[in-house]
Simulated assay, not measured.
Amino acid sequence: MVRTPLTPLERARGLQLGALLRGARGERSIGHVAVAAGLSPETLRKIETGRAPTPAFFTIAALAAELGLSLDEVAAVCAIPDPDALSA
Rank of each mutant, 00 (worst) to 15 (best):
P55S: 08
L69R: 12
A37V: 04
A19K: 04
R45K: 12
G68K: 11
R11V: 15
A24H: 06
E48Y: 04
L63G: 06
I47V: 12
S70D: 13
P55H: 05
A52R: 11
V74W: 07
V35P: 06
R13Y: 07
P5D: 10
I47T: 03
Q16E: 12
L17Y: 00
I60M: 08
G18I: 05
T59R: 02
P41S: 11
A88N: 13
V2K: 10
A61Q: 14
F58Q: 15
I47K: 02
R51F: 06
T54H: 09
L9A: 13
E73P: 04
A52T: 03
R28D: 12
K46L: 12
L69Y: 10
L69C: 08
P8A: 12
T43A: 12
A85P: 02
P53K: 08
G26W: 03
A12M: 10
L6N: 06
D72F: 09
F58M: 15
R22L: 11
I30P: 00
T43K: 08
A56D: 13
G26K: 07
A12F: 08
L39R: 06
R51T: 10
C78W: 08
G68L: 10
R11M: 00
G14T: 04
P81R: 03
I30K: 12
E73N: 07
L21D: 03
S40V: 04
Q16D: 11
S40P: 04
D72R: 14
G50M: 04
C78G: 04
E27Q: 13
S87R: 15
A64H: 03
R22I: 01
L67H: 03
A36W: 09
D84W: 01
G50C: 03
E48Q: 10
L21C: 06
E27C: 03
D72M: 08
R28P: 06
D82L: 07
R51Q: 14
P55T: 07
V33D: 06
A75C: 09
S70A: 10
A56N: 12
P83T: 08
A34V: 10
L17K: 07
T49E: 07
P41M: 13
S70E: 10
R11E: 11
E48P: 01
S29Q: 14
V77E: 06
A61L: 11
E27K: 06
G31Q: 15
